[in-house]
Simulated assay, not measured.
Amino acid sequence: MKKIAITEDSSRKIASKDKNAYVAKGIDPHQATQVAPSTLLQPFSKEIESCILSKHLSVEKTLKSQLGEPFYSDAGFILYQGNSTEFLDKLSSTNLHIDLTITSPPYNIGKEYEHPMSVDEYVSWCSGWMHQIHKVTKATGAFWLNIGYLQVPDKGLCVPIPYLLWDKSPFYLLQEVVWKYGAGVSTKYRLSPRNEKWLFYIKNFQKYTFNLDNIRDANVKYPNQKKDGKYRCNPLGKNPSDVWECPKVTTGKKRSSKERTGHPAQFPLGVVERIIQASSNQVEIVLDPFAGSCSTGIAAFGLGRLFIGFEIRQDYCDMAVQRFKAFQKERRTAYSQALLL
């Protein structure tokens, strides 16, 4: 891709090629995130499709007996509208065990979908549903938690929520992953925030699902480097670091991501896709108790997992179903095009 040149103005520091590498080298044109990564549009084998449908019918029957009728259900995708803690309590009464939970709860920062709480109340509330998730998680299962920052009165303005929650459940914290992105809030009296954290929890630190080969990074700087006559790097690529660079879901007339919905706190499919690949296998159950626009559900469905989601707001449920149907259409189009090649 040809880079875009920036006009130099040596009288301005930010427009001088001696001070600004982008002026000197040019910049890549902005590319908004697509409706879905191509990896989520790949067809499944007939065997996998059959297994997904069979498991869906079994899981749906079990859920209906304890949780009632879902808001929406299609093979591999089940969404309930209502309070997540109530649904988690009912889920614990079933014989279902969750392989992977991925979620991003409210941050208690005044978003439209939040009820204001004190910091202590917020931590206690989070601890409660984290315990519930632990209870329904399979012995070899995992829990990935996306959280940002909040203000602690008289203590700090941008306090990372992981500092407050990391040990508030029975889960074993394996590591923290930093999600780094370019776009974000601009500030004047502090540094501009450009990252959020994912906490990677597991239930049993001696045995858990981790599919490293599924997420290896092929961008190896010296792919042909050898030691004692043998290639040093795995032929599939290197182990990704704990800092993941992935564009946010952006807005704007020329910068808006194609996957963008009306939800105010939507994380990109590219991030959650890697998590699902690493911490679950096909036909396993992926849960999101704060489903929002269902990024977790779209990615889980696209990778051949069975998704269960809880979302308290009906407008977000409606939005998520519309998004899911659009994604199904995108997959069918991709299948048709593949058959023509």
Score class of each variant (00 low, 15 high):
1 M>A: 13
3 K>M: 12
4 I>R: 11
5 A>D: 12
8 E>M: 05
13 K>N: 12
18 D>N: 13
29 P>L: 14
40 L>D: 02
41 L>P: 02
47 E>L: 11
49 E>Q: 13
53 L>Y: 10
53 L>P: 02
53 L>D: 09
54 S>D: 10
59 V>L: 03
61 K>Y: 04
66 Q>Y: 15
69 E>Y: 10
73 S>V: 02
73 S>A: 10
76 G>T: 00
78 I>C: 02
84 S>N: 10
88 L>V: 01
90 K>C: 06
93 S>T: 14
95 N>L: 14
99 D>H: 09
101 T>F: 07
101 T>G: 03
104 S>N: 04
110 G>H: 09
110 G>R: 06
116 P>K: 07
121 E>C: 08
121 E>Q: 13
132 Q>K: 14
133 I>Q: 03
137 T>C: 11
137 T>P: 04
141 G>M: 01
149 Y>L: 09
158 C>S: 14
159 V>S: 04
159 V>Q: 07
162 P>M: 09
167 D>V: 06
167 D>A: 14
168 K>T: 06
169 S>W: 02
171 F>L: 03
180 K>D: 14
180 K>F: 14
183 A>I: 10
183 A>N: 10
184 G>P: 00
189 Y>E: 12
192 S>M: 12
194 R>L: 11
198 W>M: 11
198 W>R: 03
199 L>S: 01
201 Y>I: 02
202 I>L: 11
204 N>D: 14
208 Y>N: 03
209 T>F: 10
215 I>S: 02
215 I>M: 05
215 I>E: 01
216 R>V: 01
217 D>S: 11
218 A>P: 05
218 A>R: 13
221 K>H: 15
224 N>L: 13
229 G>F: 09
230 K>D: 08
236 L>V: 06
238 K>M: 11
241 S>W: 08
246 C>A: 12
247 P>A: 07
248 K>W: 05
250 T>E: 08
251 T>R: 12
255 R>S: 13
256 S>M: 15
259 E>D: 04
265 A>W: 05
271 V>A: 10
272 V>F: 08
275 I>V: 13
275 I>P: 01
277 Q>W: 03
280 S>H: 06
280 S>E: 02
285 I>F: 09
286 V>F: 06
292 G>L: 04
293 S>G: 04
301 F>E: 01
305 R>K: 06
309 G>V: 00
315 D>P: 01
317 C>Q: 01
323 R>G: 00
324 F>S: 00
325 K>C: 01
326 A>W: 00
341 L>A: 13
